[in-house]
């Protein structure tokens, strides 16, 4: 796979996962028997999209990132790697596990009546949204770090 493709797929899957998590959040706010199927489907979507983001981004990171890392570190924005990439690659694991857990929590037999289960789902979905948006922002800074590095050559 060309590196540019996996590089574009990673944030695309990530943003779709964020949108699916927003969908879960809104459905849970108004949860009733009729919305259970949508909640469970959207939760599965969050998990699947985050795993796709993990595989596509991970492939690019492990196989192709070394060249970009060298450009960033030699350029005027070394913090794009030193802080943003280093933090992003490890914070992503929290996001992946939250996304993996979401469909499990959505499969709880106590839904839709149990307030505690709804609170749990809202918490996990909100964390996925916030962490997902943070990942997108950090990815943008990393891309700018590469561009700044190339422009400085």
């Amino acid at each position: 796979m060309p590196p540019e493709i996996s590089l574009m797929l990673h944030p695309t899957f990530g943003m779709l996962a964020v949108l699916a998590a927003v969908w879960v959040f809104v459905e849970v706010l108004n949860a009733r028997e009729g919305s259970l199927r949508r909640i469970r489907l959207a939760s599965l979507g969050v998990a699947a999209l985050l795993w796709l983001a993990y595989v596509s981004g991970g492939y690019w990171y492990v196989v192709h990132y070394a060249a970009d890392k060298a450009v960033i570190k030699a350029g005027p924005w070394p913090f794009a790697h030193g802080f943003f990439m280093e933090a992003k690659e490890h914070l992503f694991f929290s996001l992946l596990l939250l996304g993996t857990y979401l469909p499990m929590a959505a499969s709880d037999s106590r839904l839709p009546g149990d307030q505690g289960v709804r609170r749990l789902l809202l918490t996990v979905a909100l964390l996925v949204v916030l962490l997902g948006l943070a990942m997108e922002g950090m990815g943008a800074v990393i891309s700018l770090g590469v561009r700044e590095g190339l422009m400085a050559r």
């Binding site: 802080f83 933090a87 490890h90 929290s94 857990y101 505690g116 609170r119 749990l120 962490l131």
Partner: peptide, 26 residues
């Protein structure tokens, strides 16, 4: 063991763990 307790555990551990990671690299 209650869902609300699990929600608090997930929230606190995510915020705390991620703050440690971001703080460390900062």
């Amino acid at each position: 063991g209650e869902p609300s307790g699990v929600a608090v555990a997930v929230l606190v551990s995510t915020v705390l763990g991620d703050m440690v990671i971001a703080g460390y690299f900062l």
